[in-house]
Computed example of a mutant assay.
Amino acid sequence: MDNIIERLETVDWQLVCSQLNDKGYSQIKGLVTPHDCDVLRNQYGDQQLFRKTITMERYRFGKGEYRYYNYPLPELIHLIRENVYEKLAPAANSWMNVLHIDRQYPASLSDLQSLCRAHNQHEPTVLILNYKQGGFNTLHQDLYGDIFFPFQLVLFLNEPGTDYEGGEFVLTEQVPRAQSKAIVLRPGKGDALIFTTNFRPVKGNHGFYRANMKHGVSEVLNGNRYSLGIIFHDAVT
């Protein structure tokens, strides 16, 4: 496993947080190596690593399949989750402050997990998603309970244009008194995308307001698309 801690330390986190404030998302190029992408993608076949498999059509979430990891998470995933959380917690608290939301997030992931457990949220929410030809994911938000962290991360585990066509990552932002804005992204293998779980603060004429955002995946036209979602809060048992 490549030294992910060193890679994370080279990221311009001030820029990431600025982009999250301005757009609700930030892309980090080449956060994980192609080899680590292959290792993570190949884990999809190891049933012992996962607590649950979801067939998306059954719940009308789209078309495809995803699997939730068990605790303990694989080391690479744990290190990314733990260290990225610590980088983002100050920005999360800034969002709560400007929106006058009575919530402050602890500095460490372990303390966030303690807060989740106090609200009966015990289950890990990290998952691998697999879309074959025709697969897609409807627009949604990953909340899982009363306690949710306002940012999440997706790692893209194979290469668009080579391993699959279509399957773009889609964000929508609700614009007050107007139609929703769509954002279409096509990150490459090894890239990470950090984005809002629920909303972002936008400065208006009378202070900040919440702009609600959702995310999904457009239809995969051919090939097989894999991604890994890292959600920082845990789920209700």
Rank of each mutant, 00 (worst) to 15 (best):
N3R: 11
I4H: 05
I4P: 06
R7A: 13
Q14F: 11
L15N: 10
C17R: 11
S18A: 13
L20H: 01
K23L: 15
Y25D: 00
S26L: 02
K29V: 13
G30H: 13
L31E: 09
D38Q: 15
D38P: 07
V39L: 12
L40A: 01
R51I: 06
T53M: 10
T55D: 12
M56E: 00
E57M: 12
R58M: 01
F61L: 14
F61D: 09
K63S: 08
Y66C: 03
R67H: 06
R67S: 05
Y71L: 10
L73Y: 03
P74C: 04
E75K: 14
L76E: 06
E86V: 12
A89E: 11
P90I: 07
A91S: 15
A91R: 14
W95R: 02
I101S: 04
Q104H: 15
Q104C: 14
L109W: 08
L112V: 12
S114F: 12
P124Y: 02
Y131N: 01
Q133V: 10
L139Q: 00
L139D: 00
H140F: 06
Q141G: 00
L143S: 05
L143F: 09
D146F: 09
F148T: 08
P150E: 05
Q152F: 10
V154S: 06
V154W: 05
N158V: 06
G161L: 10
G166T: 02
V170L: 15
L171D: 01
P176I: 08
R177M: 10
R186G: 09
P187C: 02
P187H: 02
G190R: 06
D191G: 04
L193F: 06
L193K: 03
F195E: 01
T196A: 15
T197Q: 01
N198R: 15
P201C: 09
F208D: 09
Y209P: 05
R210Y: 06
A211H: 07
M213H: 03
K214S: 08
K214I: 01
V217G: 00
S218I: 08
V220W: 00
V220R: 00
N222M: 13
R225C: 07
I230F: 07
I230Q: 05
T237Y: 08
T237C: 11
